[in-house]
Structures are given as C-alpha cells and as structure tokens.
Design a protein around this nucleic acid. Sequence first.
DNA 1: GCCAACGTTGGC
DNA 2: GCCAACGTTGGC
Length: 157
Amino acid sequence: MPIEITGYWLAKTEPEVYSIDDLARDGETEWDGVRNYQVRNFMRDRMKPGEQILIYHSNTKPLGVYGIAEVAGPAHPDSTQFDAKSKYYDEGSDPDDPRWWCPDFRYVETLQTPVTRDSIKETPGLENINVTKRGMRLSVMPVTKKEFDIICKLGRR
DNA sequence: GCCAACGTTGGC
DNA sequence: GCCAACGTTGGC
C-alpha cells in the first residue's frame, strides 16, 4: 500500500547525534545526512514550509516522540554531500545536479511528556501509524493529521 | 549484542 | 535485468 502524504510528518533522530534539545538550542537546523531516496523525495518534493513534524528519538530509552518542529523553508542541496570531511560525503554527487536535498527544520516545542513508542502502540487511533509498522526503516515518514493531533494531546498533558 | 527487514551493489 | 552478497537501520 502506498504511503499517504498528508502534510504532517514524523522524523527520527538519534538523540546522541541530534536531539530536540539541540534543535531548541539552535532554533533551526539543516536536516542533513539522509541517504535514502524515498526520504529524499519526501523532503525535496513533498515537504512544504510550515508543515509540522513530530520529532522522534530512536536508539534511546524510552523510544518516542519528544517534540515538534516545522519545515522552515523549501528543500535545498544537503551541504554534507559536498564536504569531503563529512561522513555523509558523496563523491558521486554533481554540484550542478545534487543528489541529496533537505529542508531546514525549525524548533516549535518540546513535549511536556514524551509520547513513548509503547504508549503509541496502546493508544486508540494510532493503530496504523507508520512508525510502529514492521519493517519501517524510513527516517522521515508521513503521519495523518489525526495521528499528529493525538500525539500532541498526549504530549501536552 | 542480535537479527529482521530492507536498500544497494556488482557480477553475470 | 536478475539476484546473491553485503551494508544499514533500528527495535528488541
């Protein structure tokens, strides 16, 4: 089944690499380093400025949604692909036709209560959310408005 | 630390 | 174009 695009998103990040606290500190950041074509296409072609993003922490305890960001502007070439010192350097990417694109994300809020993966699995209305689907390996994926609203409500109390 | 589920690569 | 081997993601 194709993934439905709704204008709401969930982005995974390892908090040891870049957390919602880092985004709160920075205000805005380039969402760089993604090297998956499907996610590249979401970010380059489908994300629109102002769209809301759940920030999900992976490889940590507890797993879950820790905050909200928004798309700060249109996608632009991912700067790390041309940086030979970056672990994301891609020598096959042509500066005149860059392979990897991403927008900047802008900090919106940190949830009072993180919405854990376990609670997501138990919450009515979140049965079909992509992030808990078996085999889901995309680091950026759409969520529905209903899913977005349920998670915000859970996180703000 | 394990490993399922993918995506990518490269020989043919 | 097929597909086996390999690498990565990321939950468990």
